[in-house]
Amino acid sequence: MTAIDVSRNRPSELSRAQARTGYLFVLPTAVLYLTFVLAPVVVTCILAFAYFDPMLGSHWVGFDNFARFFSDRRSLQILSNTLRFTFFAVTFNVAIGLVLAIALNRMMPSWLLYFFRLSFFLPVIIAAAFVSIVWSYLYGDDLGVINYYLRLIGLPGVRWLTDADQAMTSIIIMDVWKNTGFFMIIFIAALQGVPKAIIEAAVMDGTPAWRQFVRITLPYISPVVFFCIVYASIGALQVYESIVILTQGGPGDTTRSLSILIVEEGFGSFQIGYAAAISVVMTAIILVITAIQQLLSRRWVQQ
């Protein structure tokens, strides 16, 4: 029973007042959500099956847009770029976030904790568009700050953004620097939720720290780990501005992502139906990942 319920005395009048207020309070959100989320999603799904041109006329094309996406070598490369970025960015963001949280989950003065939270969380709250510009200078070939220090200690400079084999790695490095603090914060809270009594009992029994972690802590925080993986994946699949600013999708197409392709096709070449189909593919991937997480976490929780 979650609602305020004193309605037993005057049932009809009060519950009607509740319903009226309920609908009234939900109305603004419902209207905006319908207009700017649900309706657009439905329209995008419809557009994905059309050739859309408001001037010269539109027509249905069935699955042609999807067929084009999955048969074109360039778009498949872009899909694989995006999945590769997602896999590595998610893995490192979540894993490093967890390691940092474990490192910080110990007694320390509160000002120190404030400082740690500040420095690891600051990159999270600054726009990717801003930090990418900063990193574009740090990553410079000849005038870059990182290469300056590499050369200072006698190492050759790295072509961070202009080498086709390196560029994606450089974007992932920046992404992990930017986002891992978010997961650290979530994991710190999750670790503090692990019952102290269980850990202390394990310590008394002389259980080694590594086994304590695998046997007690990890199962306990596993729902949070799943949440973080899904959350990170949804974000990573949409990667856009960091790539636009650092490499413009290059060298060649080696760092181009689905979001960049959607903007290029939809707003550059006005292939609206095709762009809609690409965004439907992206959303489908997100739905599949979320569904897998729901299944897995239900299993884990039951055990």
């Binding site: 657009p40 949804i234 949409q238 965004s279 992206m282 959303t283 997100i286």
Partner: peptide, 11 residues
């Protein structure tokens, strides 16, 4: 779960 990419064209 809906990314901005899937709503932006109609908007």
């Amino acid at each position: 779960m809906f990314p901005a990419q899937v709503t932006i064209l109609p908007i």
